[in-house]
Design a protein around this nucleic acid. Structure first.
Lengths: 210, 210
DNA sequence: GTCTATATACGGATAGAC
DNA sequence: GTCTATCCGTATATAGAC
């Protein structure tokens, strides 16, 4: 059983140290390639402690995975369902927020996508309702723009794929991109900064095309 | 040592059966999550045979990885360096070819990107010269379009990120996308077919934006 | 070349002292 | 709560019969 300990808050308790280490290592190497010993070492504690707090590698992983997905999704759903912002404004905010997040934590997308493929079922159970995105205010606004003839009539998924592709792919493929472009990390991050302003423009231009 | 056997060509020799099975399993699960037993079973042979032919899991993996990367790259480099086709035509061909390839072998991108992150060094050694893409005819044509004022002056990598993002990301994120869009495999593939025509149009529109 | 049986290594997990 | 030592299952790799 998990030790009682009235909410250690976000302090530097052992439990938090292990979770932080686990998050870091799991994100970087994925479940299968991660050894519990790596996590223990990264956390600066003994291997036995990991099992004392979390029972097993799998349970620890589940916690990290759930937290990662939630952090990734809840923030965006709020933006998507904000009635006050326009369609175009939402694009700006989403792109900007996501790129900022990914500059801070560039390992998240490949981690999520890899583990999701290995275990597609968990998606359904973890993300509350799967149709929640397609019923967001954002998608409704998208449909309205089509009806008003302001953008071309395409499947919303095309739009989502394009936007996510342009935002997320550079981070998923950064080793390759940095290599072929001969970029240092700093130069890469500068390109990402530029993209915060460029992608919304590009997306808007695309949406007009018949 | 590898058994002598004057080139079994691409027949159904045991060696080929093992390689085909290895390719399939490695592509789907990645190096760490793959067990040699899985490969043996998939190939319909005994586990010992795998080591007889390839000595170790790692050596077998290296072969698959190298072949995958080469198949992925050589075909595209020919297109990129064709002097006869225009810039716009190249975009069409690349997008079309890649999407066709990815519909056939949708596991390749996530496999390559994951293993590349785990082992970024190998990229340099495996891909002959890393600057080879940035010096292709395609990129030269891109630069000329900028000089001629036909497209906006942006870093070529932005362009590559956008095109690859739109083409590759849907396959990398297909479990998620199929889930949120509530799509069957067939419907997903239909969207991909549409994208063969749509992406070149979108890319061209984007390139005009200042 | 292909199999069965087995050796060996590694990683997750626990026992028990402190 | 935290450590050391150790157990045990699993996975890779090899020995040796056929």
């Amino acid at each position: 059983m998990k030790p009682t300990k009235t909410k250690p808050a976000a302090d530097h308790s052992t439990e938090e140290k292990i979770k932080n280490a686990a998050r870091s290592v799991f994100h970087k190497k994925g479940y299968a390639a991660t050894r519990t010993r790596d996590i223990a070492e990264e956390a600066g504690i003994n291997l036995a402690l990991l099992n004392y707090y979390f029972r097993s590698k799998e349970k620890l992983f589940d916690i990290i995975m759930t937290e990662t997905m939630q952090g990734f999704l809840t923030s965006i759903m709020e933006i998507l369902n904000d009635e006050k912002t326009t369609f175009e404004k939402k694009i700006e905010i989403i792109v900007g927020n996501y790129i900022d997040l990914l500059i801070e934590q560039p390992d998240i997308p490949l981690f999520v996508l890899s583990e999701l493929r290995a275990n597609p079922e968990t998606l359904v159970s973890r993300i509350s309702n799967k149709k929640v995105l397609m019923k967001s205010v954002f998608i409704m606004q998208f449909q309205q723009q089509i009806k008003a003839g302001k953008i071309a009539p395409i499947h919303p998924l095309h739009f989502i794929m394009n936007m996510l592709g342009m935002v997320v792919f550079p981070f998923v493929g950064s080793p390759m991109l940095k290599s072929i472009g001969d970029l240092k990390q700093k130069e890469f991050d500068e390109l990402m900064q530029q993209r915060k302003k460029l992608i919304p423009k590009w997306v808007n231009a695309m949406l007009k095309i018949k």
